[in-house]
């Protein structure tokens, strides 16, 4: 029994050391080179640290959302990507995400507003751009919508936990 406990303890210690080593190895590239994915506090920090000049942000927000974003993740390696999340003050949780990714990049937003069922998908003219508009429901059967279009060298995607009316106003406010 003593031998088993010693073995268990040693095994546990080994797992802890392995996890520590993995975390250390994960940290090293970002310590020696900028550009790997990390969280930022403000969009200005993304601009200054990563040098991404053109960051598209909305000028219109529905009442239940506020600027600044509650979370910003960004990277320039292996490709440029910025994801901003906004908290829904009325319902709680993430209600709006905006992602801006180099067009053609194999990007998975993993946004917390997933459309579990798409009921309608149309091409929507958005101030001269051909945008893809998807309307459906999320995981809890609440209405969700998503719009995506190419802007310069980026693909911009706006997802919202609501019907598309506010979504379209937000998207239009991002464009001149």
């Amino acid at each position: 029994m003593g031998k088993k406990m010693t073995g268990l303890f040693s095994f546990g210690l080994m797992v802890v050391v392995l996890i520590g080593a993995l975390k250390l190895l994960n940290w090293i590239p970002s310590a020696v080179q900028d550009g790997f994915v990390r969280e930022f506090k403000t969009v200005d920090e993304v601009n200054s640290k990563l040098g991404i000049r053109d960051i598209y942000i909305p000028s219109y927000f529905p009442q239940n959302f506020k600027w600044p974003p509650t979370a910003i993740c960004a990277q320039t390696r292996p490709y440029s990507a910025i994801v901003m999340e906004f908290r829904d003050v009325d319902r709680g949780g993430v209600g709006l995400t905006i992602s801006q990714v180099e067009a053609g990049a194999p990007f998975i937003a993993g946004d917390r507003i997933g459309l579990s069922q798409i009921r309608e998908k149309v091409i929507y003219p958005l101030k001269g751009r051909m945008a893809s508009l998807e309307v459906g429901v999320g995981n809890n059967d609440e209405p969700c919508s998503r719009i995506s279009w190419i802007e310069g060298k980026y693909r911009i995607t706006v997802s919202m936990r609501s019907r598309p009316f506010d979504l379209l106003k937000i998207a239009e406010s991002m464009l001149r």
């Binding site: 994960n26 292996p78 994801v83 937003a109 993993g110």
Partner: peptide, 20 residues
């Protein structure tokens, strides 16, 4: 494979593979 998951991961292979 999302940006958020990678950011929280124990080890993201992309960091090493794209280290220049």
């Amino acid at each position: 494979g999302s940006i958020f998951f990678r950011q929280e991961a124990l080890f993201d292979s992309n960091r090493w593979l794209h280290l220049a």
